[in-house]
Amino acid sequence: MHKGILLGAFAGMALAAGAASAGTLDDVKARGTLKCGVNAGLAGFAAPDASGRWEGFDVAYCRALAAAVLGDAEKVEFTPTTTETRFTALVSGEIDVLARNSTWTFTRDVDLKLDFIGVNYYDGQGFMVSKDLGVTSAKELDGATVCIQTGTTTELNLADFFKTNGMTYQPVPIQTEAEARQQFLGGACDAYTTDASGLAAARSGYPNPENYIILPEIISKEPLGPVVRHGDNQWADIGRWTFNALVSAEELGVTKANLDEMKGSQNPEIRRLLGVEGSLGKMFGLNDDWAYNAIKAGGNYGEIFAATIGEGTPSNLARGLNGQWTDGGLLYSPPFR
């Protein structure tokens, strides 16, 4: 009996692993929907709006990918994942792609058998505290109670940061943004730490956002990006170049509004990107208008950024590192040729 339970669990994993083998593109096409793992609720990145429709920066990438692969941006099934379940969900084949502000690290890429297909947001870990606390620097947090999302790189960075600075802290592990909100707003933790973009997004949803400040220290590099399973290069290419298409579109001035007009452009790279010339899409098993569809879904990278997390939105994030390389940012898409 006990043995049975153990081996039953084995069997479950084995079957799940079986489903995760190569051929994701065929699976998605056969299914007719893209299964996309997103944050269970982080305003600006992935959260259902008042009518229950998923909206956000990561969600927009999923829609663009669905549009590129299936020709319809609405054919996405969103699976909310926690920090703990996200990679298991991906590796087991429950989702096709994970777009959930996940940090690209060596062990995740190599040991966890994941493929990060790009960086859609260059971030860093920060701290948020209540103004009443009178703290102006993260180095003053000795002895503080810190809320932290469990199973994240931030958890390890936090341990390193306090250790290097010879400080102590009391961690309060939490699993979701909703839990963090309850604990942090209730004063059960002095500081809340996660990626600076996540802090800004979370703060935008608080009753009195002006009462909370994000401390100036950024204690880590957090390149966030979409992830696919290791070993399916075709699918990884599709994911990577769909993202690159959105970035290139911004660089080339192709927007959702002028998309059809741009088809008549004389710029050969725009013509190749939009499938007017050459047949880039065919090379990885898609239609030639894949990038056209992807851009049509939510606009280019800049438009998505502005609509979800950019200045003027509740998150109010500046482009900063996430600007085009031509503007001093880090976004640099390889050429479409």
Binding site: L7, F10, A11, L15, G18, A20, S21, K113, H230, G231
Partner: peptide
């Protein structure tokens, strides 16, 4: 079950 698990682990490179 065991051989299937091992085969799938190998396929994932784990």
């Amino acid at each position: 079950i065991v051989s299937n698990t091992l085969a799938n682990l190998a396929a994932l490179g784990k």
